[in-house]
């Protein structure tokens, strides 16, 4: 396998109506697999959230990370994703999330650190065009002078890499801290006292509506890498719906690390 460049691939865009959190988890698994087998071209998927969620990382402890009672009280679904990294607190209008499904050749020979920055170079460019000077903060954060903007995670499956990113457009910090358990040890080398202060959302930094930021990001990706309109194929959606109802709604998966 030799290294490929962005322009070596025929990128497709999926950006469809809001979907429930468990279906998003399932779509990441299915679409990564489809790109890995070559049935689907490399794809950028922009998520629209159908409901509030806490998304915990593949290796996080459910009980250590989430206050289950608070999540229930706020009507927040708790799901586990297929990639590592930290918990994300999602409210539909407050979050911009995307996934890139690419052949592993795109990051061949790169360190983890290089691969993260490489997959999000277009995002940093898009943010720069919106007046936000953003950069990659290893290992997996996108940050600006105002604070953290986004977190990324990658997973390798078969011949493909899944790279997904959640960006904070706005944030209800009080609710987030009610639901997520963020310990002092986690913040110990971040140089800040509070988890809420660590995140500085895009809304305050751009003054733009969420949709305008997404439109701009899509245009930047298209300009840099090329991007054709696409949608979910019936078989992909069917497979993802089965996984969403099974694995990703099942306590055995969500509580796999208890």
């Amino acid at each position: 396998m030799t290294r490929t460049l962005w322009r070596d691939h025929d990128w497709h865009l999926i950006h469809v109506d809001p979907q429930p959190p468990a279906l998003h988890m399932a779509l990441d698994e299915v679409l990564t697999h489809e790109v890995g087998t070559g049935r689907r071209p490399p794809t950028l998927r922009i998520w629209e959230w159908g409901g509030s969620a806490v998304v915990i990382g593949r290796f996080q402890s459910l009980r250590n990370e989430v206050d289950a009672e608070a999540a229930r009280r706020h009507g927040i679904e708790v799901v586990r994703r297929v990639s590592g990294g930290g918990a994300m607190f999602i409210e539909p209008g407050n979050t911009i999330t995307y996934s890139i499904y690419a052949p592993l050749s795109l990051i061949k020979g790169m360190s983890f650190q290089e691969a993260y920055a490489w997959m999000d170079a277009w995002t940093l460019e898009a943010l720069g065009e919106l007046g936000i000077k953003a950069w990659y903060q290893p290992l997996n954060d996108i940050t600006s002078e105002g604070g953290k903007i986004a977190g990324a995670a990658q997973a390798h499956r078969g011949g493909a890499v899944l790279h997904h990113v959640t960006m904070a457009y706005d944030i209800d910090a009080a609710k987030m801290l009610d639901v997520l358990r963020i310990g002092r040890e986690k913040l110990s080398d971040k140089g800040t006292q509070s988890a809420a202060k660590r995140v500085d959302p895009l809304r305050s930094q751009t003054g733009l509506p969420r949709d305008a930021i997404i439109d701009h990001m899509i245009a930047t990706f298209r300009r840099l890498h090329g991007l054709a309109e696409d949608t979910l194929r019936p078989a992909e959606l069917e497979q993802a719906q089965a996984l969403a109802l099974g694995k990703f709604s099942d306590g055995a998966w969500t509580g796999e690390v208890a």
Partner: peptide
């Protein structure tokens, strides 16, 4: 420069038991 590692465990007859390692790190394969 890395991520948070969390360990929950019990001690039984002087040995580690019910060990669960967790955290916001990355591992391949999972």
């Amino acid at each position: 420069g890395g991520k948070l590692v969390v360990v929950d465990l019990a001690i039984s007859d002087g040995c580690l038991a019910q060990v669960q390692v967790s955290g916001d790190f990355f591992l391949e394969p999972d």
